[in-house]
């Protein structure tokens, strides 16, 4: 029972990560692919934050009388990662918009068909 509770967070992370991966692989729509990528990224964030959590600890802001803090290092890493995820999302969506203008579609298969015709 303790192992199940102790590993519950990681299992959720794995499930979320796989849902994200599934969307990226199986969906033809480019916007949805980017949302899938976002879910994948968030699962990694949750993984890091779970690693940094300490039982009975508080947020890592120094207060008198508190001895135990959660791990600030993982928080910092994820803070940076969230910013990067915003950057990749914005850039990805910009490319999607350009593809829509060039091909008139954001479905992977239709784009493929058009590409084949041109060749």
């Amino acid at each position: 029972m303790t192992t199940v509770l102790g590993l519950y967070n990681y299992w959720i992370v794995v499930v979320l990560m796989m849902i994200g991966l599934y969307i990226v692989i199986a969906n033809g729509n480019l916007v949805k692919k980017i949302i899938g990528l976002n879910i994948f990224q968030t699962s990694v964030f949750i993984f890091y934050i779970s690693l940094g959590k300490v039982d009975g600890g508080t947020a890592p802001i120094l207060v008198e009388g508190v001895e135990l803090y959660s791990n600030p290092l993982t928080h910092v890493l994820i803070l940076t990662a969230i910013v990067v995820s915003l950057a990749t999302t914005a850039l990805g969506l910009a490319i999607v918009v350009r593809i829509k203008e060039a091909y008139g579609s954001i479905e992977e298969e239709e784009i493929q068909i058009k590409d084949n015709k041109e060749c």
Binding site: T3, G6, Y10, L51, G52, V54, D55
Partner: peptide, 19 residues
């Protein structure tokens, strides 16, 4: 991946490697 989590330190462990 779930098989790999069996080796992970349990949630909230003070002495896990990351802490």
């Amino acid at each position: 991946l779930i098989y790999a989590t069996l080796d992970m330190p349990s949630y909230g462990d003070v002495n896990s490697a990351a802490n």
